[in-house]
């Protein structure tokens, strides 16, 4: 005998009467599927309190995590992509830019800012994957180059946070040459003996890995980040075999000698500050 008996099948409550938790109050980890309070997740540097999964965050979140009191000055915020080649694939490149701008609220796939990190001066350029897969075109290249110039002029360390699928195809030859441009400025930074930290986050592949991302005095990463030159699908097609488990993860890259260390995001600021203080 049941206490209650459903007399009418289905849900009868009208949508507007539905009681819901406010949107964004809870965060479900895409990796372990466990829920946590959004504030708790944010306070944990956007990493899962259960499984340490590192959420793919963008420049806004990194800047607020790294700069003291979240205070920073943005550089070159007014750079926007042009369309040097009149590039059209399934839709014209300028349309793609505009719709991405609207969707992401960003002007391109990288932002540069300077400020204090644990009382140390630092310039940070950070990529935004939300903007056409974090692809590197002229604006990204120019912002990085100018960020390095700022570091050179003011003799302060440079931190690059990469998260990108590689070069932006719609700027073809121009995109390719951004690899040369950023590497050229980094050569000057190296000659001036100013520290350069490259943080590779999930994912960093293609022309980004094959230029500035691998050129740090310190190449570092977050746990489990995908890092590579060719993408896993391309490699699989080339060799015609399944790829070994853990291939191209940060841990794999560390093991093969191309990373200095892997750091949990919640420890990032303290560790970088401590390292840079030793060099000062």
């Amino acid at each position: 005998m049941s206490w209650f008996k459903r007399t009418v099948k289905g849900i009868q409550t009208p949508t507007e009467m539905k009681r819901e938790a406010p949107d964004g109050l809870w965060y479900q980890c895409p990796n372990c599927k466990k829920a946590m309070h959004t504030r708790e997740h944010k306070n944990n540097a956007y990493t899962c309190i259960h499984c340490n999964y590192h959420e793919k965050i963008g420049s806004e979140a990194y800047f607020s995590l790294l700069f003291d009191d979240g205070k920073f000055t943005e550089l070159d915020a007014n750079l926007r992509s042009g369309d040097p080649l009149n590039f059209t694939d399934t839709k014209p490149y300028p349309d793609r830019i505009r719709s991405t701008e609207k969707k992401s609220g960003l002007k391109d796939a990288a932002r540069t800012a300077y400020g204090k990190m644990s009382d140390l001066d630092i310039v940070v350029t950070c990529m935004d994957f939300a903007f056409i897969g974090g692809s590197m075109g002229s604006v990204v290249g120019e912002k990085i180059a100018r960020g390095i110039e700022y570091a050179l002029k003011n003799k302060i360390p440079f931190l690059m946070i990469s998260r990108s699928g590689g070069a932006r195809m719609m700027e073809a030859g121009f995109s390719l040459m951004q690899m040369a441009k950023t590497s050229a400025r980094l050569a000057q930074l190296a000659e001036a003996k100013i520290p350069y930290i490259s943080l590779l986050t999930d994912p960093t592949t293609g022309g980004v890995t094959a230029s500035y991302a691998m050129l740090g005095d310190f190449n570092i990463s977050e746990p489990q980040a995908l890092i590579g030159f060719a993408g896993p699908r391309v490699i699989k097609e080339t060799i015609g075999k399944e790829l070994p488990k853990g291939f191209q993860t940060a841990e794999f890259i560390l093991e093969h000698g191309f990373l200095d260390f892997i750091v949990d995001r919640k420890d990032l600021k303290d560790k970088l500050a401590s390292l840079l203080k030793m060099l000062a």
Binding site: R80, G82, P84, V139, E142, F174, A180, R185
Partner: peptide, 11 residues
Amino acid sequence: KFCSMGFFEEA
């Protein structure tokens, strides 16, 4: 030369 390569708008 390489640093001058790029095409963008600066408002």
